[in-house]
Amino acid sequence: MPIMEKGLVINHQQLAQDMYVMEFLAPSIAKECKPGQFLHVRPGNTNDPLLRRPLSLYDVDQEKGSISLLYRVVGKGTDLLTGLKVNDYIDIMGPLGRGFSLPESPKNALLVGGGVGIAPLVYLGRVLKERECQVTVMCGAANAGQLVVDDKFQQLDITFLSATIDGSAGYKGLVTDLLVTQVKPGGFDIIYTCGPEPMMDLVALYAAIHHIWGEVSLEEHMACGVGACLGCARRLKASDETYAKVCKDGPVFNMKEVEF
């Protein structure tokens, strides 16, 4: 059950030019969290910025009762968040939304992330490893400096492949090029992806061609986060008459349900 809680910030670091990771203690929420869900975060006690910001769960330590969020500064709200210091409190509600479906038995899973979209795949990777899945992560970023999570995956003993646009780390080019040209298809049972829509579109196409079951995590501007305001509407397929609500019906959807 989602609740409201004030998280006590215990760690807050800048990882790259505009990327931050914040860890806080929020034991009541932490014990409810599942990979792919999000928290609705109030950046400050201000009228401007006003609304909460949906941020996906980057990592959760249920024993410690802590949650980590990885975020990119994109506007007033996330900029205000960077000012939170250790021992400050963060106003959060959650966990919200429908997370990733987890396999019942061990599977060979591929996780494809782009930019800050890698965030939910870290927590997902941890849980998949706990379920004895074989996990491979592919992460795309602009440059080596923006690849902020490689050590996280190394700690989890997850195969990590990177692609950077400028070639400063890993494969030079898009992560989808890496996927299509450098990876032997057929080895994976399941694909999860989160990142820019053109990237997710190609990953979904790859999954469809190779008959691999998969899920995507979508992003949308939100107001309420609980399915009340109907603001985060998304027409999943061009032929659909109705709109899904990313906050409540998602943010994770079956790849086959979504047209990009």
Binding site: N47, D48, P49, L50, L51, G77, E220, H221, M222, A223, C229, L230, G231, C232, A233, R234, R235, E241, T242, Y243
Partner: peptide
């Protein structure tokens, strides 16, 4: 069915829907 998205955007001390 409502309007196509985007349906909301935050503005200074408020929001449009």
């Amino acid at each position: 069915h409502g309007n196509p998205p985007p349906r909301i955007i935050e503005t200074a001390a408020g929001m449009l829907n």
